[in-house]
Amino acid sequence: MPSYILKRLLSAIPTIFVIISLAFFLIRAAPGGPFDTDRALPPEVEANLNAKYHLDDPLVVQYGRYLWDVLRGDLGPSFQYRDFTVNELIASGFPVSLRLGLSAVLLAMVIGGAAGIIAALRQNTATDYGVMSFAMLGISIPNFVVAPLLIMIFAVNLGWLPAGGWNDGAFKNTILPIVSLALLQVAFVARIARGAMIEVLRSNYIRTARAKGLPGWQIILKHGIKPAMLPVVSYLGPAAAAVITGSVVIEQIYGIPGLGRHFVQGALNRDYTLVMGVVIFYGFLIIAFNLLVDIIYAWLDPKVRYS
């Protein structure tokens, strides 16, 4: 196993390199530049800006310079938020998104996992349908509907919670965003866990265990949950990486200073360096989480072996 992990870590280097290269040229190929607005810049002014940010060099030279900067850990200045570097923007946004995202993922794992397992154990009963219908709500109602609804109920009408704002991370301000983020994940986890649990319950080893006369719950706890979590973990790897890097919809509606907006707003603004920065950051997370998933796999199911 340690040698496998080492191998994977080494393979991260070319992966990141490919990500950077692909993203760099993809982003530059899109029409529009960071300084285009409806107030068209006079040519001299545009030339000054391009010179300042080295955008007037040949693309390959820019690419080389960018790679060198990234190697030194410098993601460059943001083109949109011109008082900040990309490093600073990521450093200020990520802790916020991480906190909300981790809370949402944990909530989803506990609630969704439990719901899925209960539904599987009571397959095709009213409990099953009830639990799963509730879980489905999280998928069927998109978060741009859920979030304003929650604000309307809990902030405007009941006045229990603030309607938005981060307020330096006060607990009150995080409740609605976390719930909004978690709803979708609860639905996913519940559905996947239910399906997987049903598979497990029908597998030979559980049947064997049952035949041996072990009591039901003991079988579930001892032999059921671990394999049932396999597809959940498989889903949660990249999903967790996505959730902890923020959601643009949730951030804009609740006014939260997270990282998620940069993926979308950065792209709309053609903030080349900021988009590249969050892409690389996200790339690292994806690689890390997928590696973690594969390690957890081997632990959950001893039959899984990597060579």
């Binding site: 393979s11 990500i19 692909l22 993203a23 190929a29 029409p31 993926f263 709309l268 996200y282």
Partner: peptide
Amino acid sequence: LGGRVDNIMMRIVDVLYTVPFMFFVILLMV
């Protein structure tokens, strides 16, 4: 297939996860 093939194929997936989707769409249209 596992092993090296698995490793390469899944790294490709990692890359595709990360590539900024919006630029991909914008370019498709262009």
